[in-house]
Nucleic acid binder design. Sequence first.
DNA 1: GCAAATTAATGATTTATTCAAG
DNA 2: CTTGAATAAATCATTAATTTGC
Lengths: 192, 192
Amino acid sequence: MKVHQLARGFWEHEPSLSLSCKPFRPTSAAHTLSSFDLNTFIRPKTTPTNPPSSDHNNPHSHQVDMQAGGTRWNPTQEQIGILEMMYRGGVRTPTAQQIEQITEQLGKYGKIEGKNVFYWFQNHKARERQKQKRNTLGGRSHCPRNSRDDDNPYKRKCRRWSFVCMEEESRSPFKEEETRTLELFPLHPEGR
Amino acid sequence: MKVHQLARGFWEHEPSLSLSCKPFRPTSAAHTLSSFDLNTFIRPKTTPTNPPSSDHNNPHSHQVDMQAGGTRWNPTQEQIGILEMMYRGGVRTPTAQQIEQITEQLGKYGKIEGKNVFYWFQNHKARERQKQKRNTLGGRSHCPRNSRDDDNPYKRKCRRWSFVCMEEESRSPFKEEETRTLELFPLHPEGR
DNA sequence: GCAAATTAATGATTTATTCAAG
DNA sequence: CTTGAATAAATCATTAATTTGC
């Protein structure tokens, strides 16, 4: 049984750390800076917004079919259908706004978050690409690098971003390891 | 001259689209699904929460030193100092929560957003790695793939995510192609 | 038939590349 | 040239299919 605890043990060994004030640029020296209490961040602080035991069976009752403890998004047929349709329609990297809207709509057919939509497009795009590449190599026929692809690899432009909405643990209610300082990843020992 | 208009011309040719109901899994058949009004998304609808012209010069006045039109984040010495310190402290991929907190703190020394913090760590990590690789190849000395690196490449686990906070165009104000049907996402005209 | 064991899909993250502002 | 920003590729990790032994 691995202990593998907290792979991100940042600053654990960094008692007080005081920044060693270097001569900063005079431009925006409005704040003293001085010591900058790093401990402010560090402290695990028991996740204020999420008391350890309060979600075991919270029936948010949206769509049954989705577990409360929340593992990963499990799209419904409706959702997939719509997403694929959008993909075929040309959507590849939806904007933040679009993601918001799409998420809202798809929410009607099952629990879903913005990130799921975002990831779905990322993955689908990538996997379609792989698939096509394989076909190109093996079959040779079919549009040999057709002009249009609507993907426009290098057209970088629309900014996107999101707001972190983490979710902490609450995975396996069993195996309460005492002092489980955040036992990250309980994962399957059998690997894959 | 490419027309490249709205690479995202989804469903424009999809009048009513009815999803071709396949026999869905009986588990989550709570909603009728039926037609699913796609137009709901598409419609630009003038972004209810964001009237087109109301923010041209909103002086959010935080830290001077940062232009309003805003291009990209320009970290102050203090911010960099702190970030580097944290990096040296072992931080590599801060959690959402951490990012929030870090951002808040760094905000004292200059305008900054969560994504900046996120990107900074991503880039710094990557570039430190490159640098080290170069050194390894050329110099050969210095810890040849030392055991610890605190990075822990394969330890995936802590979820992170954010909420999209887009910002659009305003890059090349020229070349206004007429008939730009549906320039989706009207978002902040001033770009960012 | 059915549940454990495998395998196939695919959701979620991280890393590598690339673009472009300054 | 440096480095913030963004995307694509590579990977990890779960969940559903599918197979297998009883």
